[in-house]
Amino acid sequence: MHIVDGALSLPVLAAGGVLAAGGVAIGLARTDGDRLPEVGILSASFFVASLVHVPIGPSSVHLILNGLIGLALGWAAFPALAVGLLLQAVFFGFGGLIVLGVNIVNIAAPAVVVGALLGPWVRRCRPAVAVVWGGVAGAAAIAATAVMVALSLAASGDAFVPAAKLVVVAHLPVMLVEGVLTAAAVGLIRTVKPTLFDPPGLAAVPRGSGDG
């Protein structure tokens, strides 16, 4: 979810900006020049995926998929999401400009953590088991994002605490949808193209040298 400009306090904005810049720098440093096209094209796919509205009950949610992004891109999730969020802010007016750093960190940091913690399991398990870890990754990344958005709001003033709680509750259905969706996607990818989970921002192994 995109926080708008004007809501957060200056220290939160500054912290977000610094962390986002650091994350993007690490992501870029860990990405081989050869694999920039890959990061760019996957970033475009996730951008397209984020425009999909999935119905749930009487309403619908739009996807974030940061769990899947973390599994596929590792640290490169930071530059990929920075590009996506910048384009959304500039051309669609989603979110804001000064708040961009906070929005990047809130979505990309859970992606990187989930990719680092659950990535090895998703890579090594049998596809049937990887599906479970994929579901956990999808739901956990959204949960972490919701908590971080809530914390950014709560850190900006006590008056935001009820709104912050509402953010967490509102993300529960999104967690369910993204968990199911990511599980299915991980199962398919593990069967069809397992090298997708060798992220450019994690391993130094060139893609194609494995069994793929």
Binding site: E38, A49, S60, L65, V177, V180, L181, A183, A184, I189
Partner: peptide, 28 residues
């Protein structure tokens, strides 16, 4: 908004990523 619907979109997006990566390899 059913389990079947969400899983199908999951397969769709998984396939989209697979195709994107294969395209990326050709492009690279």
């Amino acid at each position: 908004g059913t389990l079947h619907g969400w899983r199908s979109i999951g397969y769709l997006l998984g396939m989209l990523l697979v195709r994107s990566l294969e395209r990326a390899e050709r492009v690279a």
